[in-house]
Design a protein around this nucleic acid. Structure first.
Lengths: 184, 184
DNA sequence: GGGATCATGTAACAGGTTACATGATTCA
DNA sequence: TGAATCATGTAACCTGTTACATGATCCC
């Protein structure tokens, strides 16, 4: 999911559309998205075809004089709607923060700062819910199994708690603060 | 990798061997390993066949009166050597702590407490190296790209730093302390 | 008789990696 | 001439998910 939405996002940011090779560069070394999600050419062309099948992008062949023609892809209205839908949803699991949430944050900020603000605050709320659920597991002696591995199970939950709390602290420091309420 | 080694580990812990259905239960709800790694029957039987092809387990058919016969798998010496080799290696990436390192820790403790001690201290060292590398990236202005996305890139690195530091703190609290040096 | 459990799988699909194939053009 | 870059893919493989197929037996 994040890979296809990242491609869709790039095609939306550049209204003129883009072709495979061009997109591949944006997932390469030193590019902002390249630090978050790697896309080898094989997967990239695969996703472009899937996006076209879903109706989220269209493609046309663009001749260019001496060079071989290339397929230029462009996001459709349905594609834009899909990306916006996706950008409104926070990720459900702490492990998805590292990749999927970062991609969402990147595009939300570029497309609509208010959307980014909402995404960040809903992600924070989701992580706080996860934290509560983990804490409840720690506090419930029945959830820690009695097969002699209670220590291990507690450590597993403690690791998840630590990772979730680290994510929460990091989200708290993102500067996508709520727009100041209107004054009059 | 972690899935196959987990199966291998279970077969080593129970010298009598085990069959698919039996192993599947140990990856289910409420079991210590079930909290860490999920294995649906499909994947489980697939891995058992792969382990047999690698020569790390053998299988024999075990008739049992009225019920249908079952395939009983048992770890070989090569399988044991492979598991011990794997248990000596810490994981290279912070994201692998959540699954692969936890599986290693579980089996290292059950098989050889000293091995567990060494694993934990090498994992700590590896995570500290990762932390240093991330800190160096933050301190190097050239590594933060100049395409106007330096803020995003910095946040990405900060997230990884936060996750890595959370892992370090958690590892520090594991109680697999070095055996006290011999006194005389 | 019927549902839960024992027991072993297959099929289809989704996502991902590595390597290779193809062929043109640009540039040192 | 030959290496780098432009441009688009295929093939083989691995991991994993969901759902289904099959058939027995146990227990109410």
């Amino acid at each position: 999911m994040p890979a296809e939405h990242a491609i869709l996002g790039l095609l939306l940011l550049d209204q003129r559309g883009g072709h495979g090779y061009d997109l591949a560069r944006q997932f390469g070394d030193g590019q902002p998205l390249g630090n978050v999600i790697r896309l080898e050419p094989g997967m990239l062309y695969h996703h472009l075809k899937k996006l076209a099948r879903s109706g989220w992008v269209t493609s046309r062949e663009e001749a260019q004089g001496s060079r071989p023609a290339r397929q230029v892809y462009q996001a459709t209205d349905a594609g834009e709607a899909e990306l916006l839908r996706w950008l409104r949803e926070p990720v459900e699991h702490t492990r998805e923060i590292r990749l999927e949430f970062l991609v969402k944050l990147y595009f939300a900020r570029k497309l609509d700062r208010e959307l980014a603000t909402r995404l960040v605050s809903e992600q924070l709320a989701t992580c706080l819910r996860i934290e509560d659920a983990l804490q409840a597991q720690l506090d419930d002696p029945a959830a820690l199994d009695d097969g002699g591995d209670a220590r291990f199970t507690r450590e597993v939950i403690n690791l998840r708690l630590a990772q979730t709390r680290a994510a929460i602290d990091w989200i708290d420091q993102l500067d996508d603060s709520m727009p100041a309420p209107e004054r009059r």
